[in-house]
Design a binder for these strands. Structure first.
Lengths: 233, 233
DNA sequence: CGACCGGTTGAGTGCGGTCAACACGCGTGG
DNA sequence: CCACGCGTGTTGACCGCACTCAACCGGTCG
């Protein structure tokens, strides 16, 4: 983790995607003066579950996984955060320790904003608070939907869902391969299965002509086919 | 569903448990004048996923399940709401249709508060908004934890968890039986399994001396034992 | 070079889903 | 009043998905 040159929040477009868009020029200046830019290398841990955070992380670029360790030693990935999202806001709002660990999936650039600044703004700027509320309401819906998907779909369907999710949320490179490259293990941890099962089912999807792989990269060939399979055809 | 005599919000203790505790006497009067008390019989549906709600439901008494239908025709129960919780606040905050259906698990008494009142209060009363924020933050943690439990525990462990959850959150009657009596099917829908599997594993738990049943009622005999089993002993 | 990590494949097993039959209580209508 | 249907609970049998353990391969790094 290193701390490179700063970018001013006032001129940062990322904030349009999160609750920070409520802030005035002046407010942004204060935040900008107090934030720290932090970069994380692929695989580096941003924070660990149970930690008390002293600030939140605004994702400028890159992808990171939010996961939780269960007593059998497996990491369950609950969410993959993308550009514009803010990590740790739940913990700061609730004034609790973090419930999840965050780890960079690729080289990642974050802005670290001290907790007190966020708390002050919650008390001062109602528009900001309402934004936060909406975002958390949306997160909550996502989580509830995830629960249903986990319990009502088999592993193959869940893998298909995860791949589609990665495509729509992180896009593809110029050859059509997924931009975010989850390791087989991470993918298995997203869908809540063993790595071996994950590998085998990916091989199945290839055989079915729904996806192709090249090296460690994955490409979705038949989006419609995947969606149909998820629905049970 | 019938609408019995009103209880004034000012003198209602239930509100201490939810975001409404932020309101002044005057604000409560307005709410009280605009709310409707609605009662639901066991099994009655309070609202259905996809509906546009025009208000929220404050649970005065009883238990209700929040569930979602998946395309294979099964209901996954995501949460069981208890006295003091507010149903529909997520949808109202996000200005979306409901993501979940709500159904009464036993005879239930609700206060229906028009949506606009809640929206106005979000804009007027920052303390209320902050309360909402904290509650949703807490709901979000619960949901994330549920995801991890679902994917990392086997069905037997999940049933044990569900029973413990019912005991701690809804208590027992004077003989020690769980106050909320989920049907086998509902319990299966909580843990995301087939009713038959659920029944068989409950029989296991009985054989192991961890629980007993009498008629349709269930009693937890060895809380510690259940907890150990969940942790994998 | 060996160590190690990620990916891959094979073989065996058991958990849990599915279908079918049956028991039981309850309300309803003939 | 009983017959009947229906919803819920229960049990049996079967089978396949997915977990586990183990071996192996290729690349990378010390």
């Amino acid at each position: 983790m290193k701390t490179p040159e700063k970018t001013r929040c006032e001129s940062c477009i990322i904030r349009q995607f999160n609750a920070l868009k409520a802030f005035s020029k002046d407010e942004l200046k204060v935040i900008s003066d107090n934030k720290i830019t932090k970069d994380f290398k692929k695989g580096e841990q941003i924070f660990k579950e149970g930690e008390k955070l002293n600030g939140v992380f605004c994702v400028r670029d890159g992808a990171s996984k939010l996961s939780k360790l269960s007593e059998n030693g497996k990491h369950q990935i609950v969410k993959i955060a993308k550009k514009g999202e803010i990590l740790g806001q739940r913990s700061v709002v609730a004034d609790e320790q973090t419930n999840l660990s965050a780890t960079a999936l690729n080289d990642t650039s974050m802005c670290y904003i001290p907790k007190q600044l966020i708390i002050d703004k919650i008390n001062e700027n109602p528009e900001f608070t309402r934004n936060l509320l909406k975002i958390m309401a949306s997160d909550l819906r996502e989580s509830d939907n995830f629960i249903v998907n986990m319990s009502q779909h088999n592993v193959k369907q869940r893998i298909a869902e995860a791949l589609l999710y990665l495509e729509t949320n992180f896009g593809t490179d110029d050859e059509g391969f997924l931009s975010v490259n989850l390791s087989r293990e991470d993918l298995a941890n997203v869908v809540g299965t063993a790595t071996e099962s994950c590998i085998r089912l990916i091989a199945d999807l290839k055989k079915d002509g729904l996806i192709t792989t090249k090296g460690k990269k994955t490409k979705i060939d038949d989006k419609r086919g995947l969606e149909d399979m998820i629905s049970g055809f």
